[in-house]
Design a protein around this nucleic acid. Sequence first.
DNA 1: GGCTCTTCCTAGTAGCCCTAGTTTAAGCCT
DNA 2: AGGCTTAAACTAGGGCTACTAGGAAGAGCC
Lengths: 199, 199
Amino acid sequence: MRMVRAGLTADRVTLAGAELADEVGLDHVTMSAVARRLGVKDASLYAHVRNLEDLRGRIALLAADEKTIRIAEAIAGRAGKDALVAYANAYRQYAHDHPGRYTATQIPIQIDPELLAGAPGPRRAVELTYSMLRAYALREPDLTDAVRIMRSMLHGFVSLEAAGGFAHARPVEDSWLRCVDGLHTLLEHWPAHDEGDPA
Amino acid sequence: MRMVRAGLTADRVTLAGAELADEVGLDHVTMSAVARRLGVKDASLYAHVRNLEDLRGRIALLAADEKTIRIAEAIAGRAGKDALVAYANAYRQYAHDHPGRYTATQIPIQIDPELLAGAPGPRRAVELTYSMLRAYALREPDLTDAVRIMRSMLHGFVSLEAAGGFAHARPVEDSWLRCVDGLHTLLEHWPAHDEGDPA
DNA sequence: GGCTCTTCCTAGTAGCCCTAGTTTAAGCCT
DNA sequence: AGGCTTAAACTAGGGCTACTAGGAAGAGCC
């Protein structure tokens, strides 16, 4: 019996869970599997993490932070279409590099509020997106609509791609370029507001 | 002991699973829960469905069929922007009415090929989308790109909405209108192909 | 009525989440 | 250094889940 004390912390448990998620998929991340990976009995994890749902929430926050940092680095010093392309590519690249973590960011949000308060990722991500899109001369409420559309497009493309939804012969990479391109033109030529809105 | 023979079939099991998915979420659809709902022991289900994964695949196919039918009805007799709007609204409405079934359609595809061959939904859905977008004077490979972009946008919006990702004060309904509107203008003014593509 | 077929059952294994209570390693204090 | 405190990790166990194997009992056919 070694019994050398594994030196667990909430962060180490979360990291092990995140790695596991990338390797085998988020919904194969079980307490038992994480414990095995850490060389520990599953009951030991409960000293650091409330339960499985809490662990998944922590993985989601970790991923949000990492993704935000990558995007921030990517768009630093860029503007306009350059910034948009850099943003989109960084977003997609993160999802490719960390598929399990990425899916964790998309779970219906029920994260411990106290935990969320300590993580800058989600809030900062929103700020980044807004400030980047402000360059397109959009004002509220169009700005919010634009943010939502951009998020929809990126998340939709990336998650369909991950689910194997693009089976056609056409290379996905090419479609991606057109997608980001289209997003740019859409933001540039934001449609006038007054059509078909009788209210 | 009643023992009146519940009259199960694969379809009835699938339907029970689909209803359950809409009520409690797809990943709370368990063999035990479906069996309880049908007044049957869980072991009895395995005569009709191979295992849980198979059941989920069947739910996905059921949903694909239903969704396709709704969209087909919605766009029947319409063209151009009318058709696009009807398509998008039917798509979103289905996801609202059947959230569990909808998420089932987005699982990484590992459906029994034989089963898939018998279900017209997925193939027909692709055909519908292609034929509708052909009205926008798009030719390959732009057509495929357009289909992918449209699917990305719709799926992205709907799934972010379902995940509670749109917390801002701005009504989601308004953003949705702008989103579909933007998609239309994007398809109408499809960007020229020759920019930034030096290869 | 007897035969067969399928349906549905009981029984059982193994894995999962999580709790309660116990042992023991690590760090501090004198 | 030896003893105390803290908390890290354990053992034990309950309850739920997926799934398998083999048995009983309805339904239709002769």
